[in-house]
Computed example of a mutant assay.
Amino acid sequence: MAVVGSGNSALQIGADLAATGRPVYAAFNELTPALPNNTGMWLFLKSTGLMRVPRQSWLGRRMLARPSQSSAPT
């Protein structure tokens, strides 16, 4: 079974399939930047105010300009 993508949904589906004993292969672009998705990262984002950055601010525009995992070239 092949799972394409490195987002949370794709990797969760891969983990669920692997738990049934099936071999699973994940296909993704290793160059796509990713942040860890854990409690520490969410606490950091909330405590620094990055979760509340307005889209119109220079930082908001910069964050929106970065490619997301789903739109990165393969």
Rank of each mutant, 00 (worst) to 15 (best):
M1R: 13
M1N: 03
M1F: 13
M1T: 08
A2L: 15
V4F: 06
S6F: 04
G7I: 12
N8Y: 06
S9I: 13
A10T: 02
A10G: 15
A10E: 01
A10L: 13
Q12V: 07
Q12K: 11
G14P: 05
G14D: 01
A15Q: 10
D16K: 15
L17G: 07
A18L: 13
A19R: 02
A19N: 09
T20G: 08
P23D: 01
V24R: 00
V24P: 05
Y25N: 12
Y25I: 14
E30D: 05
T32Y: 08
P33D: 07
A34E: 11
A34M: 03
L35H: 06
P36T: 03
P36H: 09
W42D: 09
W42F: 05
L43W: 00
K46R: 04
K46N: 14
S47V: 08
T48C: 10
T48G: 08
G49C: 01
R52G: 06
R52N: 03
V53L: 09
R55N: 05
Q56L: 15
Q56I: 15
S57W: 04
W58D: 03
L59H: 01
G60F: 12
R61H: 02
R61N: 06
R61Y: 07
R61F: 11
R62G: 13
M63E: 00
L64V: 00
A65P: 05
R66D: 03
P67R: 15
P67N: 14
P67G: 07
S68P: 08
S68Y: 15
Q69I: 04
Q69H: 12
S70V: 02
T74L: 14
